[in-house]
Each structure stands twice: as C-alpha cells, then as structure tokens.
C-alpha cells in the first residue's frame, strides 16, 4: 500500500480532511485538560490555603515562558503563510524558529523545576504541587511532542512536500499555547 487511498482525497464537507482530524484531536485534548483543570479548580475553591503553596511559584519565569510560547505561535503563523504561498524553504525556517521557541520553553521549565525541587517542592509535597507538576508536565509533554512532529514536517516542507501539514501543526501549536494561557494564571498568578 504505497499509494494513498482515494478516500483521503475526497472532501464531502468541503473542509480538508487533515484539518477536520486535527480539530477532532483537539476536541479530545480539550476535555482531557478540561477534566484536569476542573478538578484543580474544585480543589482550589475548597482549599484557600493552597494559595500559600502557590506563593512559591515564580511568576516571572512563568510570564517569560508565556511570552516565548506566544512568539513561537506567531512564527508558526508565519510558517503557515509561507506554506500557503508555496515557499517550502521559508516555511521550514519558520517552523525551526518555532521549535527553538519550544526548546527555550522546555529549557526554562527544566531550570524552574530543578530550582523548585531542590528547594523541597516536589510532586508529593502537597496536592497543590501535585497538580502543578501534573498539569504543567502534561502540557510540557505536548510541547515536546509538538516540537518533534514539527521537526519532521519542517524536513518535508524544506523539500516542498506535504506543505498542507504546516497548517495542521500550526493549529495544534495554537492549542498548546492556549492551554498554557489557562495554566499560567491558574498555577502562577492566583496566589
């Protein structure tokens, strides 16, 4: 089976199949993060004392990472536009910038966690920290997975192959960004 099935080329709804699929993936991701954050919120409302734990998160680092992610989302958009114009090389370059953003995000996050862990705030310290590491960790896993896939797509795009995938990974990347926009205030700002 080397040739793609005819089914893949059809478009009964008028929407490209890849985009449909990404939206459905995101729908299922939304409920995963939604469940986690809803649980966190229920606890947070019931336990005002968690604010004392939240004091020890570093808002500045969080803010910096927010900035990094937003910028990387912007380069992803530029990549998409380049791909639309058929400029594969340029699209690939923008994707690489996005990957660099992801790498910065993960690097900063590692430092942050190392710092917190070495000060005794680990995932088992209390339930605030459990949520902190679980939610941020699940998000970071999405960042890393996204960056890896983006690497493959960039490699193809540089050869002008599968350019439509640049858009798809971009949609995913915005989602990762939006999740962070929820996590940042909930975990860092609310003190």
């Amino acid at each position: 089976m080397s040739y793609p099935p005819i089914a893949t080329q059809r478009r009964s709804t008028g929407i490209p199949t890849g985009r449909l699929a990404v939206w459905w993936v995101l729908a299922s991701e939304v409920v995963i993060f939604g469940g986690l954050l809803a649980s966190y919120l229920m606890f947070r409302i019931g336990h005002p004392e968690w604010a004392d734990a939240a004091v020890h998160t570093n808002t500045w680092i969080g803010a910096f990472n927010t900035f990094v992610l937003l910028t990387s989302s912007f380069t992803a958009v530029l990549g998409h536009q380049a791909a639309e114009r058929g400029e594969g090389k340029l699209a690939a370059r923008y994707l690489i910038y996005t990957i660099l953003g992801a790498a910065t995000f993960v690097g900063v996050k590692s430092y942050e966690w190392w710092y917190e862990i070495s000060h005794g705030y680990t995932i088992t310290t209390n339930n605030f920290w459990s949520f902190y590491y679980t939610a941020a960790g699940l998000h970071a896993a999405h960042v890393i997975a996204g960056a890896v896939i983006m690497g493959y797509i960039a490699r193809d795009a540089a050869k002008n192959v599968n350019l439509h995938r640049v858009e798809l990974i971009g949609i995913y990347w915005h989602f990762v960004d939006v999740v962070w926009i929820f996590l940042f205030p909930l975990l860092y700002i609310a003190k």
Binding site: I32, G34, G35, L36, S39, T134
Partner: peptide
C-alpha cells in the same frame, strides 16, 4: 466524555506509583 477520566487515570497512576495524594 473520556477526557476527564484520562486525566483521572494519570492522577490515579501517580497516586499508585509516586505517592501523590490526589
């Protein structure tokens, strides 16, 4: 509907293995 349970499964897995207290 399964999303929240996947989140729950991660939490339960951490409770089981690394000793969180969700």
């Amino acid at each position: 509907s399964v999303g929240p349970l996947i989140a729950g499964a991660i939490m339960l897995l951490f409770d089981q293995t690394i000793g969180t207290g969700f």
